[in-house]
Design a protein around this nucleic acid. Structure first.
Length: 239
DNA sequence: ATCCGGATGA
DNA sequence: TCATCTGGAT
């Protein structure tokens, strides 16, 4: 199929989403950058509400700082992280991250690095992959990066922007960064819009009723562009 | 490709 | 009961 990934197509879609959804002014609320970093690690493969529960539980045992968290018994941390799932794994990851935070000299140390160096350093930490690193860059460190998550890939594939075969993370990130504004506020909004849209309509099993992007979705029969498509894979079993 | 866990809502 | 959840390491 012919892919359409040009600035006009992408801009139109984001503008449509922005008109369709009212998002909270602050998408990622937190008291400080360190708390955002913790949240970025804990939110892997879980819901945001469960991360909030876990962070609240951690706060019961002391301030959310690297030193205070490392002073806690790992079993205590694990109990707090239980609602987020993978609690043993995440306890280790959280402690690893706290160790790195201390070595960096805290938030000021992170902020002093250039974006490429910061990303490189984050990716070297066990438990921080591309998506988590970019969440931290964008939301904790105010860097203009486009975060690529499962929602992004799913939406872009269904819209006909990306091939169904998975592309490397940075390939997708750079493709979006080439067509989106390079300021962190815009990119935060983009990410928030994609997540919200992915939860409301473009779910693993899509809810196309009322989807604001129907007209631009090559995978939808009612779309003006539906001629470009292959059989929508998710329609085969039932539905 | 598989493992790592459990809460929540439909 | 089933689907989904702001992934990463092996």
């Amino acid at each position: 199929m012919t892919l359409q990934f040009d600035v006009n197509t992408v801009t139109t879609a984001f503008d449509t989403l922005a008109s369709a959804y009212q998002l909270p002014e602050v998408w990622w609320p937190a008291d400080d950058p360190f708390e955002i970093m913790l949240g970025a690690i804990l939110t892997q493969n879980t819901t945001w509400s469960r991360v909030q529960t876990a962070l609240a539980a951690l706060r019961e045992h002391g301030p959310l700082t690297a030193a205070a968290l490392l002073a806690l018994d790992p079993a205590t941390i694990a109990t707090c992280l239980r609602p987020t799932g993978y609690y043993n794994q995440k306890t280790q990851r959280l402690r690893d991250f706290c160790q790195h935070d201390l070595e960096m000299g805290g938030t000021a140390g992170w902020m002093a690095l250039t974006t490429p160096k910061l990303r490189q350093r984050l990716l070297s930490i066990r438990g921080i992959g591309h998506e988590t690193a970019d969440d931290i860059l964008l939301y904790a460190c105010d860097r203009p990066v486009f975060v690529v998550d499962a929602y992004t890939r799913r939406l872009a594939t269904r819209l006909g922007w990306l091939p169904s075969a998975p592309l490397p993370y940075d390939t997708v990130r750079l493709a979006f960064e080439a067509v989106r504004p390079h300021d962190f506020n815009s990119l935060r909004r983009d990410h928030a819009l994609i997540i919200h849209h992915g939860q409301q309509h473009c779910r693993p099993r899509p809810r196309c009723d009322g989807c604001p992007l129907l007209a631009e979705c090559v995978n939808h029969p009612e779309s003006a562009q539906s001629g470009a498509v292959i059989a929508p894979p998710w329609r085969s079993p039932n539905d």
